[in-house]
Design a binder for these strands. Sequence first.
DNA 1: CTGAAAGCGCTTACAG
DNA 2: CTGAAAGCGCTTACAG
Lengths: 340, 340
Amino acid sequence: MTIPRSAPRPTMKDVAARAGVSLKTVSRVVNREDGVSAGRVERVQRAAEELGYQPDAAAGNLRRSDRRSHAVGLLLSSAENPFDAWIQRGVEDVAAQRRTVVLAASSDESSQRELRIAQAFTARRVDGLILLPAGQDQSHLAREVERGTPVVAVDRPARGLRIDAVLADNRGGARAGVEHLMGHGHRRIAVLGHLASLHTAAERLAGAREALAAAGAALPDELVVQGLEDEQDAARAVHRLLDLEHPPTALFATRNVVSAGAFRALRERGELGRTALAGFDDFAAADLLDPPLTVITQEAYDLGRAAAERVFARMEDPRLAPETITIPTRRLIVRGSCGC
Amino acid sequence: MTIPRSAPRPTMKDVAARAGVSLKTVSRVVNREDGVSAGRVERVQRAAEELGYQPDAAAGNLRRSDRRSHAVGLLLSSAENPFDAWIQRGVEDVAAQRRTVVLAASSDESSQRELRIAQAFTARRVDGLILLPAGQDQSHLAREVERGTPVVAVDRPARGLRIDAVLADNRGGARAGVEHLMGHGHRRIAVLGHLASLHTAAERLAGAREALAAAGAALPDELVVQGLEDEQDAARAVHRLLDLEHPPTALFATRNVVSAGAFRALRERGELGRTALAGFDDFAAADLLDPPLTVITQEAYDLGRAAAERVFARMEDPRLAPETITIPTRRLIVRGSCGC
DNA sequence: CTGAAAGCGCTTACAG
DNA sequence: CTGAAAGCGCTTACAG
């Protein structure tokens, strides 16, 4: 049995030798510069083809004046989360147009992992960084920002860092959702919130409050639940709310897993169709439920695209002032759970 | 207004100058080699800290003997697809342990995009490549494989390339699903298949056939539908099946979007609870449906992990013979739609 | 324990 | 149109 010996990877030097030209001529052909005679172009191309030459992107970069790695880092919360996955897809699509690859990693909401990943990315000299900030402080990126690397926060603003942010219109979306419930006559509406420390949770609660206040309705403390992390939390909270002396007649959930848990609890109590429900964030099969769930959708794909576009804009003009870009929460998808 | 001038990024040379030592001493300290006096280690570390020095990973690599980029490429079908996203997460988690970053991109089932992305990855000299093969031929990667880059196919085998593959037990899972339906007395079971050209679709159909054959039941052509690409396709197919003179008494869907479409059609016909339904691949909220959906789950996370582990194993021993690793489709989640 | 020289694979800046 | 030399930021191989 012969041991497969991996053929050594050819370099420009090898191509030059085979084509009988100088290194520099190969470089010119490979980079499609002109000023090389047709015959030589041909010979170099054939030699490169025969050897299976592929330029080494990193080596080329080292001496190149613009020092672009043609890579951007994307620091998500959890890559398997559909919201994060759609952001990634938006980033990928913009990056692909610019011949840029995407380095992706998940922080799992840990500041420590965020720091480590950010360092791994900057050690590779990414041309830009898009992050869904975890924890309370992103100042570890300050030096990188000073050095001119475009860094853009997505979904939540960064803290301790003056950078661009691309956010959803969380407040407006929540307002629209609660207004819709009020349109069905509800005034006693409970808000089921996720982790209070998160920007999105705070904004959506604020939006719900605004909608109620504008209609002269109250949002008593007993109808505000925060810190719901999963379906079980949400289901338990709904059971407690329905046990109140004056239970809410409608529920507004600030996140998709919370909506799902609320739905489950309403079903367990036989309250589906009686207590109304609307939620922030769509999810697969929400329209197959009975009644189908009314939701505000977030355009995570657009968030990703906008963040990536901002990174590239800043690469072209590093002097842009940091901005917060708000992506409209475009659609209230009225299905049945709201009472429609 | 002052124009923010980005501070130039310091190099080892700058650190050496500041610490008053040679370049090589800085290199030793940065790489934690020993044989440097404590005082110098201290001085170098302080200088590096003050300048905010960060080694350039690519530059270091260039001369380094092992030539590891500490990056792997992950070529998915569609990053926003939950199945793909879970694979990514599995790959990420294994890569993170090895201090390796993940380059991710989506082919959208286009051979051309697959080729372009693979080239972008190899131009960056990734240490390994994991791909969910798109199209009919991956021989464009043959040269890279010969050169010793570990390349692993995930979810589907590659074609025109003898490489490792990490696949789900599609056949066994489908068999288990159909057997479960037969356990409820069904013998006239329709199979709702996705794109016939895909390995997963063929295997799952084969598994369903096997289960029926083993019980001496037939799978007549009129009960086999293939090429279903989305919920609408699936719903239409179910309507046609139910219009047959002898409609099926149970449906087996080979993919989650197909299950969802089938569910919708059954609801539209008032057949929920009468015609049984089971599907391959779980999805969010499948358990909130009424009746909740019985499914075979795929462990996409495990597929991703196994593929990444194989890449690293092959980096350590390039002489490993190409293998097909089958990940069990571990669980039949029996909910209500099967008739239980 | 320390460092000067050469070299990784390429581009830049320059000379012919 | 063509190429020899220097250099990007680092590591290697070697000498002291």
